[in-house]
Simulated assay, not measured.
Amino acid sequence: MLSPHDRAPDDITAEQAASGVDVQGISWDSLQLTREDYRATRLRENPRRDWAETTAEGLRDLVKEPKKDARFYEFFLNTRKVKCNIAHFQLRNLAWATSKHDVFVTHENVVVHWDACAKRKSKVLDLSGSSASGPNGLGNRVQICTMTAKDDLLIVGGFDGEMIAQNLRSGTTVHNKRITDDENAITNAIDMHDATIITCNNDRFVRTFDKNTFKSKSAFLFQQPVNHATRQPLGKMVAVAGDDKPIHVIDGDTDERITQLHGHEGYSFATAWHPGCRLLATGSQDQTCRIWDVRNMSRSLSVLGARLGAVRSLRFSSCGQFLFMAEPRDFVHIFDVNKGEFDNCQEIDLFGEIAGIAPTPCSEALYIAVSDRTFSSLLQYERRTNSGENE
């Protein structure tokens, strides 16, 4: 990544960006190259640490080419007071927002709360194992590889199969146990659906727990490690992505296998249901996101392409208008769902590894956590009043 001669400021505001300051504080003049030249170099070199070395010719032909001049969200603030980092290069769900102003990210095995209104950060869960970790520290070091937060509950997953839950209102740890004792126990993803917690682990299980008591409710075994799973809103279908090409759809109440979704050419790490319950988005290391309609799951409705690498994170906005798609580095895409057409897109072009994306519960803002040796930060974008218009 870039190394500027001058230290970047802690905050970059929308006003500064409008006057020509780089939103990440990168001093292009001191680097003796233009932003455009560096972007071209990144696209050309494309390190491709992902599973797929190339995208199959036939798959490229299927990828939709939407218009990319939309401006649904405008840059508002970039703060370098908040640092972010990644524990596992394939797991990028490390940023969550519980309100427009309350955002949670991970840095060095500590969960940090950013109050965007007061512009103040604080530790809420310290799993670094430091003796000076304070009252919220649990003593033993846990490598945080995934996280979720909703309402007053924060849950993190660790490399050794840990699941730790923190009540955000009281500040107390309400659960701290390993999900599995398997030697291949990484907690790859955690999701909350109503009163149920859904976990995915490398031991090939999708498990569910009661959200209030943390008692085990069910355990579904698959043939390959499971990377991500989400349950259909107001429905029973659970989409399961793992280390095989098909996406599995099961009945979340009975474990009955409903169907398999075929089309991806690599392992998958992201699933997201539209709040309207009909559309499902899945993201793969083949560098595509596929959109599925539950009324006909024999083939995907649309295929959306990435620029640099795998599709690591997917979220629909709560209003249902937008799909947020994050790559491992540099690019976040915002698609207009528009009755399932996905014809308009905003492309947010950054530099650095993307630790997570966090749309706010009411769709008013989007936060992007960037992990980088020099420019680690948290970027805030605000939804435009006329968010369907292009510039």
Results as ranks from 00 to 15, higher is better:
S3H: 13
D6E: 06
D10L: 14
D10V: 12
A18C: 03
G20W: 15
S27Q: 12
L33Y: 01
T34L: 14
R35E: 01
L43D: 03
R44F: 15
E45Y: 13
D50H: 13
V63E: 08
V63R: 06
K68Y: 08
D69C: 02
F75Y: 11
T79M: 01
A87H: 09
A87Q: 12
H88Y: 10
F89Y: 12
R92Q: 06
A97I: 15
K100A: 14
D102N: 03
V103C: 14
F104S: 10
V110W: 11
V111A: 04
K121R: 10
S128F: 10
A132R: 03
L138V: 01
R141M: 09
I144A: 08
D152K: 11
V156N: 00
V156G: 00
D160L: 01
Q166S: 09
Q166G: 01
G171T: 00
T172E: 12
R178I: 02
T196C: 05
N201W: 04
N202V: 08
V206T: 10
N212H: 05
Q223F: 07
L234R: 14
M237T: 14
A239D: 12
D243P: 07
D243R: 15
V249K: 12
I250S: 07
G266L: 03
Y267K: 00
A270Y: 05
G276I: 02
R278H: 10
T282S: 13
G283R: 03
T288I: 06
C289H: 02
C289I: 02
V294A: 15
M297P: 10
L304H: 06
A306R: 01
R307Y: 12
L314A: 03
F316D: 14
C319P: 00
R329D: 14
H333Y: 05
K339A: 04
E341A: 12
L350D: 03
I354K: 05
A355H: 04
S363T: 03
L366H: 06
I368N: 09
S377R: 07
L379V: 12
Q380N: 09
Q380Y: 08
S387V: 11
